[in-house]
């Protein structure tokens, strides 16, 4: 794939929680239009890394830049409005809202409709609402749950709930879409479908960051992979390079470093 512009740069980021160093001088970048995989064993700092990108945690040192702009001290909803959207490892939908409404909360992220627009049904409200609705339905079509748009989110099957999470994140109109273990709890057939969906999402023009455990899924869908272990980046490269990287094999199989090298 040709070298393209970096959407997000993680620059020498360190995070400490008290005595625990969750991330230790991690640097990598996500380029426009790619699917980047972020992998590592349990507790490697993947989700922490994710949280610092989306503003849930503040970096102890270092910087995360999005489109060249530092994200430090930005409110979380501002970061979303700038163009980073995420899903959650443990599904966090708005359970008592319908599927369509869940997605429309996402499209609302860029809405400029205020209180009086809504109260008096001013043109801005009507226009935005119609656009949101159309966009939401389009996205539901892409992820393949359009038929269930009027269902309560909590009544969806597990797989569809994961799809809805992706749809909701896509609806915020992100440049970068971060998926936190979207295949958790899936069987192989569902994982296959998810892979197709992730590719489809990329083809829609989103840049995707994928955190995943499942090696087959990661190898099958990503363009590049960054590997974390104990909060440090131990490898970065194409799926083929990562597959043969001894440090990665060691990290996953738990071999002593001396034996692996």
């Amino acid at each position: 794939m040709p070298e393209s512009r970096a959407v997000l740069e993680v620059d020498d980021v360190t995070i400490r929680f008290g005595g625990l160093t969750a991330l230790d001088s991690v640097s990598f970048e996500i380029r426009e239009g790619e699917i980047l995989g972020l992998i590592g064993p349990n507790g490697a700092g993947k989700t922490t890394c994710f949280n610092v990108m989306t503003g849930v945690y503040q970096a102890t040192s270092g910087q995360v830049r999005f489109d060249g702009r530092p994200l430090t001290k930005l409110k979380r909803h501002k970061i979303t409005q700038l163009g980073i959207a995420r899903t959650f490892q443990n599904i966090r939908l708005f359970k008592s809202m319908t599927v369509l409404e869940n997605v429309m909360v996402g499209t609302d992220a860029n809405s400029k409709v205020g209180f009086f627009d809504a109260l008096f049904r001013l043109p801005r409200h009507r226009r935005t609402e119609a656009e949101s609705l159309a966009r939401a339905k389009e996205i539901l079509e892409v992820v393949g749950i359009k038929a269930r748009y009027d269902e309560l989110a909590s009544n969806l099957s597990y797989g569809d709930q994961r799809r809805l999470e992706i749809a909701r994140a896509m609806a915020t109109g992100p440049k970068l879409l971060c998926l936190d273990e979207p295949a958790a709890g899936f069987n192989p057939a569902e994982k296959q479908k998810l892979m197709e969906l992730i590719r489809k999402v990329r083809d829609e023009g989103y840049t995707v960051l994928l955190i995943e455990h499942d090696m087959r899924l990661v190898m099958g869908v990503t363009d590049r992979i960054v590997v974390l272990e104990f909060g440090k980046k131990i490898a970065e490269g194409s799926p083929a390079e990562i597959r043969d990287n001894p440090a990665v094999i060691a990290a996953y199989l738990g071999v002593d470093e001396e034996d692996a090298s």
Binding site: R76, M97, E101
Partner: peptide, 18 residues
């Protein structure tokens, strides 16, 4: 919608741009 999303899951709502 923003109210309901906040009621359902405040953190998730915030991260969805509310």
């Amino acid at each position: 919608r923003a109210w309901e999303a906040t009621r359902e899951d405040e953190d998730a709502a915030e991260l969805m741009g509310v």
